[in-house]
Every structure is written in C-alpha cells, then in structure tokens.
Amino acid sequence: MTVVLETRNLVKKFGGITATDNVSFKLHKGARHALIGPNGAGKTTFVNQLSGVLSPTSGTILLGDQDITGWSARRRAISGLARTFQINQLFADFTPVQTIVLAIAERESKGSEWYRPAGSRSEYVDEAVDLLRQLGLSDVMDQRVGSLAYGRQRLLEITIAVAAKPHVLLLDEPAAGVPESERDQILEVVASLSPDVALVLIEHDMDLVFRFAKSISVLVNGALFVEGTPNEIANDPRVRQVYLGEEELLHV
C-alpha cells in the first residue's frame, strides 16, 4: 500500500509546552483513519502542522514522497491536501454555490481571471451544483452562508474541502456542535467520499469513530500513545484508562 502522508519525529513546542511530541505517523492511500485522544492531547495542533497553518519546531512532513515541511498552506492545498476546521471557516456573505465555484476555480488556477464574469464558466457551476447535491445542500445552495443552520454550515465546510479533489482530507471534528439528529447525515457524507481519498477524522464522539474508522491512532499529551484497529483500541486497557481518567476528571 502506498503511503500518501507521513510525519517523521514531528515536534511542536509553544514556549515550555510540548504540544506535539515526536510523532511519527503514516497514512495509506484510501485510509479511513481516526485520530482520537483526550482534550488537550494536541490533535488540532497536529492537524494544523499537517495543513501548514502552523510550522513544526522540528521533524519532517511528507506528502507522497515530497518533503512539504516548509511549504505554505496554499501550496499544500493545491498539492492535494485539504482540511476542514473545528470552528467553521466559511465565507459568510457568499452563497454555497459561490463558495464552491470559488474553490473549484482556485483548484483549476483560474481564480485570478478578471476578463469574464464569475460564473461564466458553466462547467464549474455544474460541478459545484453536483457536489452540493451529493452532500445534501442543494436546497440551500443560493442562500447566504451566514444564515444557514449550523449543521448545514458544517456540511459546507466539508464540501469546500472535497471540492479541492484532495488525495488526503483532514476532518477536524466535523460533527462538533451538530445536533444528534444531524450527525448521521455527516457520517453518511463522509462515508460516501471516494475510496481513493485518504481520510483522517479527528473526533470526540466514539460512536462515530468506531462506525467510521478502519484504523485508529490515540494521541496523549502530544505523543502517539497507541495505534491499531478499532477492535484493538477498544480492548486496550491503557486506552480505557486514559479515557476513564478523563471521565473522572470531567465528573469532578
């Protein structure tokens, strides 16, 4: 199996705090991988380094066989690494169609075209409409993004990432804050994504994780604690201890 994304001895320090502690991690083509861990384990920090929002203190990141450690977020994005954010990062004044057409135009390096009106490339519009339909957003596609329900915005967040046609897609808590009733829809959407795309899911909802993932990594205090299949993880007493410890803390 081909490795599409890899980190070697990745370290990120904020002052005296080590948020990512020597993480070496491999992601295979078409993976359905979940990244879990208690609060403050450094999951989002890790994803931020993968996507180029933060730069690591030391270590390397490889996309395919290219060293992308020093690359900008933008260059990673056009090289096939897309992500969603834990907190929605949307264009509030655009409509979903505008948003996705924009994402497609940037993917095709046509984002600086000024001599023809936006939307005059009908192949982009058609693709955007198809995509929005696939992700269940076609009924709201020309409403203002800022006025959409939160669950819908979460779906759009994923649609933007998918529109980039990535090889690797990092989903940072896609269901965070989404009402119970709409979570299934998000999971369905994620499950329906192309089997060629390697997916990394960061999630707190264990139910969601075990329904989705074929492999799981557990991060604790910034370090890779254990890796394995869902079955192995579920039955690992150390993992249970980590989570039980947290449960106890939460109940205090």
């Binding site: 996507s51 929002v53 900008s72 977020a73 933008r74 994005a77 056009i78 897309a82 992500r83 954010f85 990062q89 949307l90 264009f91 509030a92 004044d93 655009f94 505008q98 057409v101 924009l102 994402a103 135009a105 940037e106 993917r107 984002g111 600086s112 936006a118 933007i160 529109a163 980039a164």
Partner: peptide, 18 residues
C-alpha cells in the same frame, strides 16, 4: 470573488489554495 473571499476569511482562502 477571490478578493471578497479574502476579506471575509483569509485563512479559509489560503487553505483552498488561493
């Protein structure tokens, strides 16, 4: 469109490859 996008959210603009 891309300018309006940057004004609204430059982080997102960057991460779609703009």
């Amino acid at each position: 469109m891309s300018l309006k996008a940057i004004k609204q959210n430059s982080l997102r603009s960057r991460t779609i490859g703009m």
